[in-house]
Simulated scan of single mutants.
Amino acid sequence: MTICVRSVSNEEQDSLLQLARSRTRGAGLVRRAQIVVHALEGLSAPQIATKMELCGHTVRFWLKRFNERGLQGLQEDMRSGRPPTYSAQERSTVIRFALSRPTELDRTHPVSDAGADRNGQRPVRWIWISSLRFSTLSSVRA
């Protein structure tokens, strides 16, 4: 079965070309845009699959999605699975503490509650304690 890509507007084609050449967007999204661009250039699904070293089923899947949904169809759908253990705010708090210097940490208030997870574990507290130990060791060595 031959799958042809639908006709696209000039704006949509410009967006596809820009996305296909992007070096800052996600690799999967860029790859899917490249599939559509090759189809717009007249290549068949098997030719695109060979050129991009992909499975023919993958190429046909993304061409169908693009035909149905347009540029938004190139985005990945939400997947089912286990919900995240930590919220985005908790992760950013841990990362901020992990990347900061021990002398920059404000140790005047307990930060363990900010990173407490549902099981009562406190990853931020351990980073805070280890930074306290590190800063104490640094002052002793100096």
Rank of each mutant, 00 (worst) to 15 (best):
C4F: 05
R6C: 06
V8T: 15
S9V: 07
S9W: 01
N10M: 10
E11F: 04
S15A: 14
L17I: 01
Q18I: 08
L19D: 00
A20E: 09
S22Y: 08
S22M: 08
R23P: 00
T24A: 13
R25A: 15
G26F: 05
A27H: 10
L29R: 14
L29D: 05
V30P: 06
R31T: 07
A33W: 05
Q34V: 03
I35H: 01
V36D: 02
V36I: 14
H38A: 12
H38T: 02
A39T: 01
L40G: 00
L40Y: 00
E41P: 01
L43V: 00
A45C: 12
Q47E: 07
T50C: 04
T50E: 13
T50F: 06
T50V: 06
E53W: 00
L54F: 04
L54D: 01
G56E: 14
H57N: 10
H57T: 11
V59A: 04
R60M: 09
R60G: 07
R60Q: 13
R60N: 11
F61P: 02
W62S: 03
W62N: 06
W62C: 01
K64S: 09
R65N: 08
F66A: 05
F66D: 02
N67V: 06
E68V: 04
G73A: 06
Q75C: 09
Q75E: 13
Q75I: 00
R79P: 02
S80Y: 07
S80K: 10
G81R: 11
R82S: 14
P84Y: 04
T85D: 08
Y86D: 08
Y86L: 14
S87N: 03
A88M: 09
A88V: 13
S92M: 10
S92D: 12
I95L: 10
I95E: 10
R96S: 13
A98D: 07
R101D: 15
P102H: 07
T103D: 13
T103S: 11
T103N: 03
R107N: 07
R107S: 09
P110M: 05
P110T: 07
V111H: 13
S112G: 15
S112H: 10
D113M: 00
D113W: 02
D113K: 04
A114P: 00
A114F: 07
R118W: 05
R118S: 14
R122K: 15
P123Y: 01
V124M: 10
V124N: 10
W126A: 13
W126L: 13
I127R: 02
I127Q: 04
W128S: 15
I129E: 15
S130G: 08
S130K: 09
S131E: 09
S131Y: 06
R133A: 14
F134H: 14
T136L: 10
L137Q: 15
L137P: 02
V140C: 02
R141W: 08
R141Q: 15
R141A: 13
